[in-house]
Design a protein around this nucleic acid. Sequence first.
DNA 1: AAGTTCGGCAACCGCCTTGGT
DNA 2: CACCAAGGCGGTTGCCGAACT
Length: 253
Amino acid sequence: MVKTPSFDNNGVKKGAWSEDEDDKLRAYIQRYGHWNWRLLPKFAGLSRSGKSCRLRWVNYLRPNIKHGNFTKEEEDMIIELHKKLGNKWSEMSAYLPGRSDNEIKNRWHTHLKKRAKDEQTVLDNQPIGTLKPDQTNTKHDLIHNSDTALQMDFDFLLAESPLSSSSTSLSSSWFNGLLDSAGSSDYAPIDYFWNDNFLSENDTIVSSSDNSFIPSDLVYQASFQNTNTGDDNFFWSSVDSYLEHNHDQFINF
DNA sequence: AAGTTCGGCAACCGCCTTGGT
DNA sequence: CACCAAGGCGGTTGCCGAACT
């Protein structure tokens, strides 16, 4: 299933992650965040490359990540997004909460690529004139997305998404519109999990400006205020800011 | 039962982008 | 402007279990 653990010439471990390594990485990031992937393994006590740590966290260890058991809706969405975006797996993952780009990519290659091709073949070989009304609808839906409402959502999302080339800035209306059009937080970009998992239920985001849309990177740089105690809690977005506020711990490092 | 092929997926590799100096 | 380091992304690989012969 996974690559056999081994060490390269620099003593960096490769291959499958052990439970102990997962625990170390998870505990470290949940406590300190990932302020610098390259240095993180050293601080966390791991013999891994920063890239490997990042990948493990993003694809497997981060909170709310889902594995396997793709729903029909998720698969439909992937196929639809692939039509619109091509192999932009990371962009697709923004529309599928809890799904990593790697998992979406794997799902596409192992299941959906064939399914999409088969569906297209059926459509190509079936003249519209031979279809009954309901079949015509089916063909229309498949061509123009399997669900009309979903299609409208896709069009809207893609047009308004901050990831879209036609969009020039992160707009608050994008997320508000996202929720309005979807009518459900299921369509919310995955970035929102950061808020959920690094804040206690009594914490609120303190933002100096528009806080309707806060990408994960910005969340890390934001400050949070406990509504009960009024205390501010900071997540460190850079090694400099971290060291600055934790100087005593590293004075002898 | 043994050998072979296939499917699924975690992880790696190399390139590109971005930000700092 | 050029260079460098770090992060991010998409393509690919390697391994294992299941299915097949």
